[in-house]
Design a protein around this nucleic acid. Structure first.
Lengths: 143, 143
DNA sequence: CTCCGTTGTAATCATTATAGTTACATCAAA
DNA sequence: TTTGATGTAACTATAATGATTACAACGGAG
């Protein structure tokens, strides 16, 4: 199991938008950088737009960030593209036997722990902003 | 996206084995507690056996833990059932454009962060033993 | 030694998510 | 009005998941 590349693609897109501020980016251009189809890019960008992270210009094309880089966290991007449902990273089996003492109670007990685990992962994403990422990326590109 | 129920089913199985120590558990019995097919249980148990967590008796049936409860962490169970590949919780898009500065460098930068995120999640699993879980579960059953 | 219930595992199937692709209506600027 | 871009539906291929059937192999009870 892997978390959909929609998330890493979204980060790629936003980094591009940030670094190529002077260029008028089209979905076709971005698709070439990511190495996928332009429609895939448009779909991800549609979600980023719905989340209020970017503005997309029809007609002539072009994308703009709607928030300062240091106010966009990786968690926001992750949530924008719907890769993991809230509190449901781990799949439980449906309808365990309520007549079995273990079956009747295991999920409540386990769920507490798994929520904590998911939360720990997402907290890391919440602590990193696009600004930090782009700074490191720019340095890497410059060198 | 959700992490396969193999993991939560495996925890269910091991809890049952621990709590029903006096019973000779068959895959059919366990399947009724989980509410699934006996073959699904046997497949998960096969992985737990390969990981050295349980001993399974053919012929008459029956399962036994091969390690003390306090020496089995949820992380070990998670790894035993192969639900997430090591360091690959997040899917990257394959072959980003090496001629694009962002495409050529974004993955290295992002990977560091995502490994940290995965690690944070798995660390929580590593901090919880079956003993702790079964203790809470038993209390809940007793009350 | 044979019988019987159980495990181990292959094979098949339905369902779902992902990602790619084509097609085309809609839009906005030149 | 033309042109090139976006938005989105529709379809496809691929893969993972979980359920199910079938059956060989095993091992204890009689």
């Amino acid at each position: 199991m892997k978390i959909s590349s929609r998330f890493t693609v979204a980060v790629h897109i936003l980094s591009l938008v940030s670094i190529e501020r002077d260029t008028r980016l089209t979905s076709e251009f971005i698709a070439e950088s990511v190495n996928t189809n332009a429609v895939v890019i448009r779909r991800v960008m549609g979600k980023l737009k719905n989340a209020g992270l970017i503005e997309i210009y029809r007609g002539q094309g072009g994308v703009e960030l709607r928030k300062p880089l240091d106010q966009i966290t990786l968690l926001e991007i992750y949530q924008a593209v719907d890769v993991v449902e809230e509190g449901e990273l781990f799949q439980f089996h449906q309808n365990p036997n309520p007549n079995c003492q273990v079956g009747a109670n295991i999920q409540d007990v386990l769920e507490l722990i798994l929520l904590k685990a998911q939360n720990a992962m997402e907290s890391v994403l919440n602590e990193v902003t696009l600004e930090e990422l782009v700074t490191v990326l720019s340095k890497k590109i410059g060198s």
